[in-house]
Design a protein around this nucleic acid. Structure first.
Lengths: 138, 138
DNA sequence: ATCATTGCAAACACTTTGCATACGC
DNA sequence: GCGTATGCAAAGTGTTTGCAATGAT
């Protein structure tokens, strides 16, 4: 597997410790974290880390197309490493976001009603398998 | 067509002038406005209208399921009157949001990978027919 | 020494809350 | 007159910006 440092170098980003750890966090924790979740996940091992750096770095990675920034349902941006097209499912009970690898009607690059489609998102919302189990056990 | 006042009464909401005009605005302007757009669209004719009332009223309507609140792509809630399932297309040039009446794979009420789907959203992004035309004429 | 990166503090935008005033029956 | 609705001001989030201190070559 390609190292994080190499990915940064390929994108002409100097691999500072903050940048490496932030991208690593996104690669290793496929939880669609918010900027705040990234900050909280790293601040213990990097106590001087600032939220500003997290925001700036995530923004930089999105510009360089290393990460994708998504606003799925709520009023907050979530970041993900996975660039393959996939469906997002958000559980309304526990708040977890799942990636579903189901393929879906892909309008990308098609003309629909005269509009040129460049992105196609499918977002589902409901109750995840875990929360369904917990409900039954009540 | 059912009057706005009747819709409010049916939902046990007293039809104050603010509430009537806000719901009317949503029914007559299918532009998926933000709270701020609703405020700006009405404040001229109702100069004492406050944003708080707009926010409170929109929230009330969403709770009563008269309106739907959507976070489509950006970090802001947009409101719409149309309850029929449909596709949203956002133009990255002009920012307009279009409703597309295309039907789509409807996962609602299905179990997918063990998760119970209750909402299914399809969001497209690209360049709308209008902006495509303008580009060509350059 | 120079240029880029970091991180604090302040500013911002969107939204919610507390509470006093005004309205409607 | 009493309960509800309104709207100002303040607080609360998530995010961005200005800028000085720090770090890398």
């Amino acid at each position: 597997m390609e190292s994080i440092v190499e990915i940064l170098k390929q994108n002409k980003i100097s691999p500072s410790i903050q940048r490496v750890r932030i991208l690593e966090f996104l690669r290793d924790n496929r939880i669609h974290p918010t900027a705040d979740m990234v900050y909280k996940g790293l601040v213990d091992e990097m106590p001087t880390l600032s939220k500003t750096t997290v925001y700036n770095t995530l923004k930089l990675f999105v510009e360089k197309q290393i990460l994708v920034g998504l606003t799925l349902f709520e009023n907050e941006v979530r970041y993900e490493y996975n660039m393959e097209p996939h469906i997002h499912f958000k559980c309304t009970k526990c708040g977890k976001i799942y990636d579903l690898d189901r393929s879906f009607d892909f309008y990308k690059d098609e003309i629909i009603d005269g509009h040129k489609v460049e992105e196609h998102h499918v977002n589902l919302k409901g109750i995840c398998s875990n929360c369904l189990k917990t409900e039954k056990n009540k």
